[in-house]
Design a protein around this nucleic acid. Structure first.
Lengths: 342, 342
DNA sequence: ACACGTGTTGGAACCGCTTGCGGTGGGAGC
DNA sequence: GCTCCCACCGCAAGCGGTTCCAACACGTGT
């Protein structure tokens, strides 16, 4: 169980014929250590296959080498992808990723109340959700850097996409195809980051305005996140006296839900009704869903890099402007001109 | 950046009017501590919002309060779900989850070579992948308990589902519907756990045998995991001189890929060809896919409970038999009798 | 030859917690 | 009423590093 007898810094020092203090400095590349001594210590360490004890190093004042990641729903593709990118960047810097789930309201409240990450990490990454005043204060009490990924948060360095722009790409596509009556299925997921209150929804309105089409608020329905939500939203839209000819869904999974409702109603997509989502979820390709792709994994990776830079003290003071990665329209088979066969 | 002054065990002890030693024992649930004292210390800790320093604890010989989780692909639904269940169980025991990605061959090799989790965790959980001899030895060198989730691994306590049984549920359903020529799209994902080499594939053969149908090996195609793989697999199956009338896909995403190929080929599902998967991925419901559901999150949770029990020394010695959770057939719209309209 | 600065190195004090060992006090046993 | 025992608790020694500070050895300026 205890494994092989541990080799300590003292062993190395003894072998190199120096004190522990000197050995520590030599290995730590500190100045004021004679080159010859440094070499001797290095060699001794090498021969002994010495590996410093992380706990001892940390206890003695160093960083923990860990960063906390707050994620609402690990099982959703978006978050998983973010997590993957983040993990890669952190691992590259030899940092461990400690996962904290803050999905439901209770979990979230529990996390911020108890702050289980306290004293255990050097930084925290908030994945795609906005923190309120109190939560912000609680995080501040951890005394470590915070960065946000998957959306932008005013108070922290963040990396995400411009939801408004993404929304415009989707809406403009629909409008360009000739649609005038366009519905929107927004999601109410509290956890989701809400940049400029709701970029995607505001894009719906802005695009219509720009096209000279008077927005009809009845065409915007808000549902819980997920396929079922999308299905319900679509049903509500179909229930309108004057249903839309195209629908912009907040994301791909919502869009897929909407499509199921359409299929069940005997409507054809895109012949009878066009549908577009956002994300470019792997299943979007499988289901031939037109969407606006966003580089999710890259957002996670970039956030990780930001954390690393911050830990190295390479970040300027103050909150830098949000880093926005590009999104792009991916044309597939669920959109077409209104009333047009294919 | 040092944040608020750290609260140490000494602070707690002082507030409770006892020595550091007693405080440590009280919080550590050691025997020989008066109940009243224990309560007082607990209260003091609570009031001060005390959190032990993992490094100090570990350095002094105690547990770290952390468990490493090895996950191949965090972004896949299956793993994300497993992760969620696991996190919940660990969190409940106040254990932190440190995530290590071991997806690609290089990452995996790097992990086992460097063993970044060394001395940093009290246990490790292997999510749905089989470890080979060397990896097994490396893990053993960590000197901590290991449990597997999402499949069973001979050498560790594990929780999963019986893939063979799940496969039988799918196959028997198809056979019961009257299909005789049934294809199978297996996946070659190295990471995926391979219980009794490949439960799902063996089920294909066993089911046919039991039904007195001679298995035709041409009907089994193996593809990389994922929708694209499924699509390719289906294409190969369609290319056969005598294509199947039904297909059993290794999992839902593969099944969805298969369906895309069918749609593009102008074939109707299930009228022309039935498709069934395994998992009951949320999108299965949306796409009306018939499948064999498995309780993924529960597997993660149970694995977490196993870890906790192990850490408490409540586990008997030796490797207990794998815990197998039940799977169940979920009838939806992608299967029907052969050549039968709906 | 003397005082002093510079570059190195060693001694030792922590960092925060666990635990072996010894000490204290009160109840049980006689 | 007086041992004796034992449940409880405190002291202090680490765990393996880092780092402040003092000590020391040389060179150099005068």
């Amino acid at each position: 169980m205890p494994g092989p007898p541990r080799i300590t810094l003292d062993d190395v020092a003894r072998r190199a014929g120096v004190s522990t203090a000197t050995a520590s400095r030599a290995l730590g590349d500190h100045p004021h250590v004679a080159a010859a001594t440094r070499a001797r210590v290095r060699e001794a360490a090498e021969e002994l296959d010495y590996v410093a004890s992380p706990e001892a190093t940390r206890l003695a004042g160093g960083p923990t080498g860990r960063v906390a990641v707050l994620v609402p729903h690990p099982s959703r593709w978006f978050f998983g992808e973010l997590l993957e990118g983040l993990e890669a960047a952190l691992r590259a810097a030899d940092l461990d990723l400690v996962l904290f789930r803050v999905g439901g309201p209770e979990e979230r409240a529990a996390f911020f109340a108890r702050l289980p990450a306290r004293r255990k990490v050097d930084a925290v990454v908030v994945l795609a959700f906005a923190v309120d005043e109190i939560e912000h204060a609680r995080l501040a009490s951890l005394g470590v850097d915070v960065v946000a990924a998957g959306g932008r948060v005013a108070s922290y360095p963040s990396v995400g996409v411009d939801d408004h722009v993404a929304g415009r790409q989707a809406m403009d596509h629909l409008i360009h195809l000739g649609h005038r009556r366009i519905g929107m299925i927004a999601v109410e997921d509290v956890g989701r980051l809400a940049p400029d209150p709701d970029g995607r929804t505001s894009a719906w309105r802005a695009a219509l305005d720009d096209a000279g089409i008077p927005p009809d608020d009845d065409l915007v329905v808000t549902v819980p996140w997920g396929g079922e939500g999308g299905a319900d939203g679509m049903a509500r839209l179909l229930g309108l006296r004057s249903p839309p000819t195209a629908v912009f869904a907040h994301d791909d999974e919502t869009a897929l839900g909407a499509i199921r409702t359409l299929r069940r109603a005997g409507l054809r997509v895109p012949e009878d009704l066009s549908v577009i989502g956002v994300d470019d979820h792997p299943l979007a390709a499988l289901t031939d869903l037109t969407t606006v792709a966003q580089p999710v994994r890259a957002q996670g990776r970039r956030a990780g890099e930001l954390v690393v830079a911050g830990l190295r003290g390479e970040l300027a003071d103050g909150v830098p402007p949000a880093e926005l990665l590009p999104t792009r329209l991916v044309l597939r088979g669920t959109t077409s001109p209104p009333g047009a066969p294919r």
